[in-house]
Design a protein around this nucleic acid. Structure first.
Length: 583
DNA sequence: GCCGTTTTCGGCCCGACTGTTTTCAGTCG
């Protein structure tokens, strides 16, 4: 039983309670607890297991914001017994298959309860059938339009568009901004929402505009080249599907720009917390501004919103209700890493394995970025599909690296190419090069590339065995996820982090936008455990080295990382001294 | 269900859009 499983139980309790018609604030409490738990950097199971009694465990658990006595006791029960009696009794009251209907756009708990009660509908197929036969319109409160909407929603749900990797949504958002910028009445236009928070996946594109002529903007937006469907069009807000992705646009007056930017950036949970703080100070905070009674006391700048509740500015990447509000109150917001802090890239490929460019080309690209070093980390021979190197090819590469470094030195260029490998951790736990070979390299990166479906215990031990090898410095893409394609390996990430800490091994944050692995919350977890991170690109050509790093930096910021948490913010000498097999 | 230097009870963020309502409910973010 891990945190994620417990979060799922509370999500189901929330869903079932909602359909049952429970107090919405109770539902919200379960949802908030689920969100908190799934992004918690502590293991609930170990908190419960090291407690002497239930009361002791409850005392510890209720220190977590959003977890009170009721939910704490349920966590205790779940960890101890593997079951939740609350969930089980709900399941006997509310048909559990109704939960899936909640995922259909435009279908909410009230509608579900109604169609279930009136028509006995409990599956998507039954709902679709009833809508087609116009049976739904007979129910009070529903009509023909509702039937159309529900059918459309079902179609959308089946297409499973869902969330897309940030690198796919960002260019579309930039294209929309570019197109609308040219309108005369557009004074300001910004990207907000999860894109501004740099979340790894994006559900929809949010654009905010200041304009004295909203209807001109709405018309232009809904007629953009690329708009496939107009979902809603109002005075100040419209929604469309833009090249397969939902896009929302909102127009506000200039004096509301700051408040609207904050509101539209989210996250939803962060906004709720900020507005609650406002309520306690007798203020109303909405997208138009900050109000005391009728009087507006701010909202032109985003800082106004934070200042109104006595907080410093919180960077968008932190606005997830992952503790940033408490940290801001305590004056303990981290100084987040920035692009300019990086001094090198510790994981790039060259044409010695599956990279496109030569070592020299990669080095020159790195120099142009202002870096002091790169580690060329070509694949080892077991990764045949990526042209992995054997020992002989490795020796040949070594000579080329040495010649290149001599040239840089004699030309007075402060830059060094580090000789590295991305050595494969094979399914039998062995590394793909002998210790003798690894010992002579500048940097040894180890990673898993095959047999990804081994069980949780085996995968955990497989990675830890690499961590314990005396020459392994860095573990690359530690969880193996590929967004939209492949889940992370089944892995006990906490044990991996503890082993990394104990052995002085660095974990990689792979900047590839469909990897971003470690992910944001894992970076936070690593930081709290004192594990150092390398933000690397894993670039297979020079253009990628330049372009994908921003996603890595953004993810690091979402994971609360400061320059000192990251090894490649250090000068060459200092960075090398932090690696395990020192040079 | 959570939470509290004005509360251990009585609040709980706030508004836009749509549809079916003749004054508001449902859904969404």
């Amino acid at each position: 039983m891990i945190n994620l499983d417990i979060a799922r139980i509370f999500d189901e309790i929330a869903d079932l309670s909602e359909i049952k018609g429970e107090n919405p604030f109770r539902v919200r409490a379960y949802r908030r607890a689920a969100r908190t738990i799934e992004t918690l950097t502590l293991d609930l199971r170990s908190i419960v297991e090291r407690s002497k009694s239930e009361a002791d465990a409850v005392r510890e658990l209720t220190k977590i914001p959003g977890i009170g006595e009721g939910i704490a006791k349920k966590i205790y029960e779940i960890v101890k017994t593997g079951r939740s009696s609350k969930l089980e009794s709900l399941r006997s009251e509310v048909n559990p298959s109704l939960v899936e209907l909640l995922k259909i756009p435009h279908v909410g708990p009230k509608t579900i309860a109604k169609v279930h009660k009136e028509l006995g509908i409990s599956t998507i197929e039954e709902l679709e059938e009833a809508a087609r036969r116009h049976k739904l319109a007979r129910i009070a409160g529903l009509g023909r339009k509702a039937e159309e909407k529900i059918l459309k929603g079902i179609e959308q749900y089946r297409k499973q568009k869902g969330r897309v990797p940030i690198a796919k949504a960002l260019p579309y958002a930039e294209a929309i901004v570019e197109a609308l910028k040219s309108l005369k009445s557009v004074r300001k236009i910004v990207i907000a929402g999860s894109l501004r928070r740099w979340k790894d996946t994006i559900g929809d594109i949010d654009i905010l505009v200041v304009s004295e002529n909203p209807s001109e903007v709405m018309d232009a937006f809904t007629r953009l080249d690329g708009v496939e469907e107009v979902l809603a069009k109002g005075e100040t807000k419209s929604s469309v599907i833009f090249r397969g992705i939902n896009a929302d646009l909102r127009v506000v007056p200039p004096e509301s720009f700051g408040a609207a930017t904050h509101y539209f950036t989210g996250s939803k949970q962060h906004n709720i917390r900020i507005r609650e703080l406002g309520v306690k100070k007798g203020l109303k905070i909405n997208e138009y501004g900050i109000f005391r009674g009728e009087e507006r006391i701010g909202g032109e700048r985003e800082e106004d919103v934070f200042a109104a509740v006595n907080l410093p500015f919180i960077p968008p990447e932190l606005r997830e209700d992952w503790g940033e509000i408490e940290a801001a109150q305590a004056g303990k917001l981290p100084k987040l890493i920035e692009m300019k802090d990086l001094k090198g890239d510790l994981h790039v490929h060259t044409n010695y394995s599956d990279g496109k460019n030569s070592i020299e080309e990669m080095a020159k690209a790195a120099i142009s970025l202002g870096y002091e070093y790169i580690a060329v980390a070509d694949h080892s021979k077991a990764v045949g599909i990526a042209g992995g190197m054997d020992e002989e090819k490795l020796r040949k590469r070594q000579k080329e690296i040495e010649r290149l470094n001599e040239r840089f030195e004699s030309a007075g260029i402060n830059f060094r190419v580090l000789s590295a490998v991305e050595v494969d951790i094979k399914s039998d736990f062995k590394l793909d090069f002998s210790d003798e070979i690894l010992r002579d390299l500048d940097v040894v990166i180890a990673a898993i590339h095959s047999k990804l479906s081994q069980d949780r215990e085996t995968m955990t031990r497989r990675i830890i065995s690499a961590i314990e090898n005396p020459y392994v410095d860095i573990i690359a893409h530690p969880t193996g996820r590929i967004l939209g394609k492949r889940e992370a390996y089944s892995l006990d990430i906490e044990r991996v982090m503890d082993a990394a800490h104990d052995n002085g091994v660095v974990l990689e944050l792979n900047s590839y936008p469909d990897r971003l692995d470690l992910r944001d919350i894992h970076c936070k977890m690593a930081k709290e455990r004192g594990v150092k991170i390398a933000i690397s690109t894993d670039a297979h050509d020079a253009v990628q080295m330049r372009e994908v790093i921003r996603y890595g930096i953004a993810t690091a910021r979402r994971g609360w990382l400061s320059p000192e948490d990251v090894v490649n913010t250090r000068s060459l000498r200092e960075m090398l001294s932090m690696l395990k097999h020192k040079h």
